[in-house]
């Protein structure tokens, strides 16, 4: 399973890296607009005659880089908050616990849309706002997992032994507890990247995500929706790549989970 999932992701990553070979994703050619897949344009062209292969592959670069960034950032934030909450307990844990509850009680996508809406109104549209908005809701899962792991790890005898030799609280947390929670965290992160890809694509589809002319899967999918009957390839290929990469990350995550 690890190899299947890893293989799918690796293929998509290599293809995305090779994107420049497929040409410029933004060069408009009105003579070839809405042409179906052919040798010249394996994935066809869109309503502006742009090469879909190039657009989908460039879109993959953006989608994957943004998704991985979001996942890593949420992991850092979530781990830190969860670890502190679990390790120190008491009032700290109560306060963080209630904050997490608040986040859990609002559907994620609604919160994302609200965040993007508010920040875009204030600062204008940018990719960083999308990243920030998704991280804002996404860290909660990591925090919950980390808190649980820390609660059980801190009762282990080797933590007591580290205290006995005189190690400080933060030292124990960072050197002994967090590294031992790494296994399940990596599994969660892999599964989470799949979700994040979908979230970005959803935001892109709603026109709230990464803005044109930067190509991004969800947004390309959206641009094809008016031509779905006449030129279905515009929506089909980004959709296929979203599905494949989510599937790849999920299979990899399940595989890692089964092994650990």
């Amino acid at each position: 399973m690890v190899f299947t999932g890893g293989g799918i992701i690796l293929c998509i990553l290599i293809l995305s890296c090779l994107a420049p070979i497929a040409g410029d994703p933004c060069s408009v050619n009105m003579d070839e607009r809405l042409s179906p897949p052919s040798f010249k344009h394996p994935f066809g062209t869109d309503q502006l005659g742009r090469d879909m292969l190039s657009r989908v592959l460039h879109g993959g670069r953006v989608s994957l880089i943004v998704a991985i960034t979001i996942s890593l950032l949420s992991m850092v934030v979530g781990c830190f908050v969860g670890a502190v909450s679990g390790y120190f307990g008491g009032v700290v844990d109560d306060v963080i616990g209630r904050i997490v509850d608040v986040f859990m009680s609002i559907p994620e996508i609604v919160l994302n849309i609200a965040m993007v809406g508010v920040f875009c109104a204030v600062y204008g549209v940018s990719t960083f706002i999308v990243i920030f908005a998704v991280v804002f809701t996404n860290w909660v899962g990591y925090a919950r997992l980390m808190r649980g792991m820390v609660l059980s790890l801190k009762e282990r005898e080797f933590v007591l032994c580290a205290k006995a030799i005189g190690a400080g609280e933060w030292y124990i947390l960072f050197r002994h507890i967090i590294p031992n929670a790494a296994g399940p965290l990596i599994v969660l992160a892999t599964l989470n990247i799949g979700n994040v890809i979908m979230t970005i694509a959803s935001l892109g589809f709603l026109g709230l995500g990464i803005q044109p002319p930067i190509p991004e899967w969800g947004q390309i999918l959206n641009s094809g929706k008016n031509y779905i009957t006449t030129a279905p390839w515009i929506s089909f290929f980004p959709g296929l790549f979203i599905a494949l990469s989510v599937l790849g990350f999920n299979i990899l995550g399940e595989g890692l989970n089964a092994e650990s």
Binding site: E157, F158, L160, C161, I165, H176, N180
Partner: peptide, 12 residues
């Protein structure tokens, strides 16, 4: 110093 009961658990 402390030498605990269960050696399997005492080291990281």
């Amino acid at each position: 110093q402390l030498i605990p009961q269960n050696p399997d658990e005492a080291l990281n």
